[in-house]
Design a protein around this nucleic acid. Structure first.
Length: 227
DNA sequence: ACATTAAATTCGA
DNA sequence: TCGAATTTAATGT
């Protein structure tokens, strides 16, 4: 796999691009990266947050294990996603486990640098506000979807939620998420997720591939309503 | 839960 | 380094 340098990756990141040169230099100097194999814990629930993180390559998830032992995935984080600002802003511990779902490369902006950006740069503040706002909307939609919709709509929302242009910019049309993972994301068993994928395929909205989905009609997935 | 198929990895030349 | 054999992962029912 061909890999870009840390500097190139940062230079291609939207919020970094909007920074003035002098500021960008410090960000580049302070940033570091980590690599993770599937199932690796990137950050553990309960740890003190040391950095704000971005997925450069791969796919990670934010999840929690509830008492029954069941895994609840709050959010799938594809390449391009930046996350964990909550714990960094509030100087508190992480609320979720961050786990790599496949081989992943994660960029880190140290807490001090992040806070300095927040305190000194207006453009960065705008970015963070938009980001938090988009995420809030996403979680509100998720709550709503959670209670009232049938499995096919749940899965459609889970998929389209991964393509939010503000939170996850620049994703290609093929989503490498297994049906098992899709089930975790949508709060369904793999079996129901499988049935839902079939239904979406029959409707021509996605194509099922081994280990992933080809997204055919993103808007239709977003707008899908209960039957 | 089980059977089938795809992909990834190992192993022998 | 090639391809067959084995193991692991994902899917369909």
């Amino acid at each position: 796999m061909r890999t870009k340098s840390l500097g190139d990756l940062l230079a291609d990141t939207p919020w970094v691009r909007s920074l003035p040169n002098s500021v960008r230099e410090r960000v580049m100097a302070d940033a570091y990266e980590t690599y993770h194999d599937p199932k690796d814990v990137v950050a553990r629930k309960g740890d003190v947050a040391q950095s704000w993180m971005g997925v450069a390559e791969g796919f990670v998830k934010a999840s929690s294990v509830v008492r029954s032992g069941k895994v609840v995935m709050f959010s799938g984080l594809p390449a391009g996603a930046w996350f964990g600002e909550g714990s960094v802003i509030r100087r508190t511990i992480r609320q979720y486990d961050i786990i790599a779902m496949r081989r992943s490369r994660v960029l880190h902006i140290p807490r001090a640098t992040f806070r300095w950006l927040l305190e000194t740069n207006i453009d960065f503040n705008h970015f963070i506000i938009d980001h938090l706002n988009a995420r809030l909307a996403q979680f509100m939609a998720m709550t709503e979807t959670d209670r009232m919709t049938d499995p096919v709509v749940k899965v459609a929302r889970a998929i389209s939620g991964l393509f939010d242009p503000i939170i996850y910019p620049g994703l290609g049309p093929l989503l490498q998420v297994s049906q098992e993972e899709l089930g975790e994301l949508a709060g369904l068993t793999r079996q129901s997720a499988n049935a839902a994928v079939k239904a979406l395929q029959a409707a021509g909205l996605v194509r099922a591939e081994y280990g992933g989905l080809l997204i055919m009609q993103l808007d239709a997935l977003r707008n899908l309503k209960e039957p």
